[in-house]
């Protein structure tokens, strides 16, 4: 194996080693919580990216999948005592079903129309949840929200007293979604997606079944997003429709993925971790000064990043990465240029 590949592997090993050992150095639960949230948001942004980034579609209603995943799993747990470890697959399946149902009518919409459709669907689902107290044998809670039945420390039920298991869980989830993204991007489906991202009509003319490609990618995205919702539910242990299905959730995923670099494998990861860390740090230092100051600063930061790097932060890091690997920006191995 050549030197570039060795460097890549070395880098991955080092990053993983650091990530795995963080809880050994960082002891304060609050910091573990913050880092876990950063990882969770990186995961959610990556899940969004699986479909929206790779296929170039703007879904502003992805909150429905976190909501469906969370609610289905928690309802099965609260009312039927099914462990979330198992229930999460039901939640994921429900999300896939929802995504496919929505996909059929919405995928023939282009650009902004598709985005607006997702906004409408997202808001609609949120309002529906807010107005539903019970659904058959399940208690949904409506706008009052759904409390996750507390069991103290119950690993079999995905509840831990310590923050550390959540951290490792989030880390594992992030690694899985990144590996999956990499696989998807380089698979045949991935090529179809980037083709239709570029020009849907041309792709169709080449014989690609655009609708099916979108449906499959959207299903993957929905599944992963739903699992993220389950994790959120188990971490916060309280589901409020506005928070888990609302615009805050949906928009945040998009922000993070795009600012990080949508359509790339690591872009959403970088965006998720960096931006969420920044928002926590700003809240930490500024939130007790003037009302709203911390959000103002956060907004300004996002504005400037978008203005100066619309391709995402990953673009900057890419340069340093290439330099580290010894590859020129044109993708050639510098050491072998004659």
């Amino acid at each position: 194996m050549d030197i570039v590949q060795k460097k890549k592997i070395g880098l991955i090993v080092i990053i993983l080693a650091i990530a795995l050992s963080i809880p050994l150095f960082v002891t304060k639960p609050y910091y573990i919580h913050v880092i876990t949230m950063c990882l969770l948001w990186a995961y959610l942004a990556s899940s969004w990216n699986l479909f929206c980034g790779f296929a170039g579609q703007l879904s502003l209603g992805h909150g429905i999948f976190t909501a469906v995943g969370a609610y289905v799993t928690i309802m099965l747990f609260n009312d039927f005592n099914i462990s979330p470890w198992i229930g999460m697959f039901a939640g994921g399946a429900a999300a896939v079903l929802l995504s496919t149902l929505i996909g059929y009518p919405t995928f023939k919409l282009r650009g902004a129309y598709y985005a607006l459709a997702t906004v409408a669907i997202g808001s609609g689902v949120m309002v529906l949840i807010e107005n539903t107290m019970t659904l058959g044998p399940f208690h949904v809670g409506g706008a009052e929200g759904l409390i996750v039945r507390l069991m103290g420390n119950a690993p079999a039920y995905l509840q831990f007293m310590s923050k550390v298991p959540y951290y490792y869980l989030a880390l594992a989830m992030l690694v899985i979604v990144v590996v999956f993204s990499y696989w998807l991007k380089n698979s045949r489906l991935g090529f179809y997606l980037s083709a239709l991202k570029e020009d849907e009509d041309a792709a169709a003319a080449l014989g690609i079944n655009v609708r099916n490609a979108k449906l499959v990618a959207a299903a993957y995205s929905a599944f992963f997003t739903a699992i993220g919702g389950v994790f959120y539910a188990m971490l916060i242990r309280y589901l409020e429709p506005m928070a888990i299905a609302g615009p805050m959730m949906s928009n945040e995923m998009v922000f993070l993925a795009v600012v990080g670099g949508s359509g790339t494998v690591f872009g959403p990861v970088v965006g998720g971790i960096t931006l969420h860390a920044i928002s926590e740090v700003i809240q930490f230092y500024f939130s007790d000064m003037a009302q709203g100051l911390h959000l103002f600063i956060y907004g300004l930061i996002v504005v400037f990043v978008i203005m100066f790097k619309p391709q995402g932060i990953i673009d900057i890091l890419q340069k340093y990465y290439n330099r580290f690997l010894g590859i020129s920006d044109r993708g050639e191995d510098e050491s072998s240029v004659s």
């Binding site: 170039g56 570029e198 922000f255 795009v258 907004g299």
Partner: peptide, 28 residues
């Protein structure tokens, strides 16, 4: 910067970020 990109998502996000800036500026 997004002239040749089919869906200028970045612009949309920019306006969303500007909305946050304006809202909190007004709050302050």
């Amino acid at each position: 910067a997004q002239k040749d990109v089919r869906e200028p998502i970045a612009v949309l996000l920019l306006t969303a970020a500007l909305a946050i800036v304006f809202e909190n500026l007004a709050l302050m």
